[in-house]
């Protein structure tokens, strides 16, 4: 069981690499080095702020785009191209397939983020010529970004298990945007009354809460991050991904592969 999941995951990773997904790194490095050189000409202190803000935002956006665009095709494309038939006619259970695909995509994003992180630190070193202790906070921000990717991965996989790639992309992007404002949604729910309050509260807890993962602007100002938040965000991402993946398994397990 574990071996099969690992094989499916590594094949998914191989597909992403051969699809030249990691080429995005080139665009990323160009963007970042361009920014670093440019802000090097602006005033002191703010250049570091710009590099951190821009770098981490780019890491996050590039990753989300990759997560969605690979994620939405993971299952539906295999059904469409009928590559799934020869996999599922082997001793591979459907849930193993889903879990394997998820780990493959998550792994792709972790590797991708790793290289982008090197880029961010490189640009940071270029503008400030040294690392200070507070720079370790960037690692926390990167960790949160990866947690965010895990949530997006699981969601796009969920949509992919029952919908066409285009619709899945629309769903996943909408949830990403809504999720980024989830705190506002919960505030809004708190102001409503009666029936709409229940509905809004329910919706606010079902959509991914991504705002707690975005600490880019606060760490750029060297605000410390509470250890409690790191723990709770980790738990949240794991629970949320587990929920979305269970949903994907539930749907996929019942599907006729026409």
């Amino acid at each position: 069981m574990r071996a099969r999941i690992a094989h499916i995951a590594s094949n998914t990773f191989r597909e992403a690499v051969r699809d030249r997904v990691l080429y995005n790194l080139i665009a990323f490095v160009l963007l970042l080095s361009g920014a670093a050189v440019l802000v090097g000409q602006i005033s002191i202190e703010i250049e570091k702020l710009v590099v951190i803000n821009l770098g981490l935002t780019a890491v996050s956006l590039f990753g989300v785009v990759i997560a969605i665009f690979i994620g939405i095709g993971l299952v539906s494309k295999e059904i469409e191209k009928r590559t799934l038939y020869t996999v599922l006619s082997r001793p591979v259970r459907r849930w193993e397939f889903i879990i394997g695909k998820f780990f493959g995509l998550a792994g792709t994003l972790v590797v991708n983020t790793f290289f982008m992180a090197i880029g961010v630190f490189g640009a940071l070193f270029y503008v400030s010529h040294k690392f200070v202790r507070a720079d370790a906070l960037i690692l926390v921000a990167l960790y949160f970004i990866i947690l965010e990717f895990i949530i997006i991965c699981s969601l796009s996989l969920l949509f992919s298990s029952f919908s066409s790639p285009l619709l899945s992309a629309v769903f996943a992007f909408s949830l990403f945007v809504i999720g980024s404002f989830a705190e506002d949604l919960r505030n809004f729910a708190g102001m409503a009354h009666g029936m709409s309050r229940w509905l809004a509260t329910g919706a606010a807890y079902v959509v991914p809460n991504l705002s707690a993962f975005n600490i880019i602007s606060s760490i750029a100002h060297e605000q410390p991050v509470a250890g409690q938040l790191v723990l709770q965000n980790t738990l949240y991402a794991l629970f949320y991904a587990s929920m979305a993946l269970s949903g994907a398994v539930l749907i996929f397990e019942r599907r006729d592969l026409k």
């Binding site: 094949n11 191989r14 597909e15 051969r18 699809d19 009928r82 590559t83 038939y85 020869t86 006619s89």
Partner: peptide
């Protein structure tokens, strides 16, 4: 073993 009709495989492999 199973051979589907008009089989198609992971073309990157």
């Amino acid at each position: 073993g199973f051979l589907p009709e008009q089989p198609y495989f992971y073309d990157y492999l």
